[in-house]
Structures are given as C-alpha cells and as structure tokens.
Amino acid sequence: MNFEVIREYLPLYQEAAVLTVKLGVLGIIFALLIGLACALVQYYKVPVIRRIVAAYIEISRNTPLMIQLFFIYYGLPKIGIRTSPEVCGVAGLAFLGGSYMAEAFRSGLNSVEAIQTESAFSLGMNRVQAFFYVILPQAAATSMPPVVANVIFLLKETSIFSAVSLMDLMFTAKDLMGIYHDTTECLFLLVVFYLIILLPVSILGSLLERRLRYAGFGA
C-alpha cells in the first residue's frame, strides 16, 4: 500500500464524503417525512389515499434504487421536468426510503393496543391529544430499531448515486481506479470513509434504542 497515494487522494474522498452525507441526510429526512405520512394514512385507514399509499409502498420496495434513479434522471426530463443530479439523488433516496420508513412506523403504531386509545378517550382526550401523548411515544420506541436499520441501509444505498454522475464516494473511487489503477489504495479509502460515516450512526442508534427502551417499558 502506497501511503503517498492515499495522502494525495484524501482531499478528493473528503469532498465526496461531504456530498454523500449531505445528500444522504437530506434523502433520509424526506424519507422519514414520507414514511410518517404514509404510516398515518394506513393507521387511520384514510379511504382511497391508503390504496395509493399501498401501491406506492409495493412499487418502491420491489424495484431497485438504480432503476428508480434512472426513471427520475432520464424519465422526468422526457415529461418536461428537468432537475440536477443532486435533486435526483435526494428524490430517489426519499422515494425508496419512504416506503421502508412507512413500514417501520406502521409496525410501531400497530403495536400500540387499542385499549390505550380507549383509555385516552375515557380521560377526555381528543384524537390529536391521544395520538401525540399516548400512541406516538409508544410507537416510536417500537419503531426505533427498524428506523435506525433503515437509516444505515439508506446511507449505504447512496453508493448508487454514481449511476447518475454524482461525485459521491463510490464515483470517486471508481474514477480514480479507472485513471491511475491504484486499486488497493482506492478501495481501502472507500471502505474507511464508509465506516467513518456509518459507525457513528450505528453506535448512536443503539444508544438511542437502549435509552428509549429503559426509559419506558418492556425492558
């Protein structure tokens, strides 16, 4: 392994890592919002919209991110919508992640027993109060492990961004390997950078899970 090469490539990887994290975080935030909205639609069985949500979830979960990105990147301009690769990346991640997050939130919401809502109503709470004070905190604790797993999964999926010519970590590594053939160093840096991004998320996630579990119940 040539450390001189690694030192030389480091700034390029740093730049790529910043892009990966930036787009990843944005995509995940949107995925969380979409997921929560979809889970609520399904939980409260909103007529018609819940069918649309169900269809979206099936399409989103059963097609690869690569194909979804191609649709957004090459397909949307054909109907007159032109966007930057960055927007495509975020949109693709949000589209894919939304369904995974929806399922995570839904399992959490469904795990809260009906009697909880009923006793909230019996204490005079309205639907909104029952949701925010009683259902959501319990659902969040159950949903936390799958949500954390999804966050890590989506961050890893950003490696597909190179397919729409985004200069992310994967793109940078492939690019450098193609030009200079320093395969060992390039792949080593790639692994290290993904670990730097993902390990803290993973550790933070398990801490959060434990905190939620011990603070409340079921421990």
């Binding site: 909880q116 009923e118 006793s119 204490l123 409340g216």
Partner: peptide, 12 residues
Amino acid sequence: GMVFQSYDLFPH
C-alpha cells in the same frame, strides 16, 4: 370516567 379490566395505564 372509566377503568377497564386489562391494565390500561400508559406504559411509557
């Protein structure tokens, strides 16, 4: 006011 058969306290 109502109290149920199964424990309906909020576990969190």
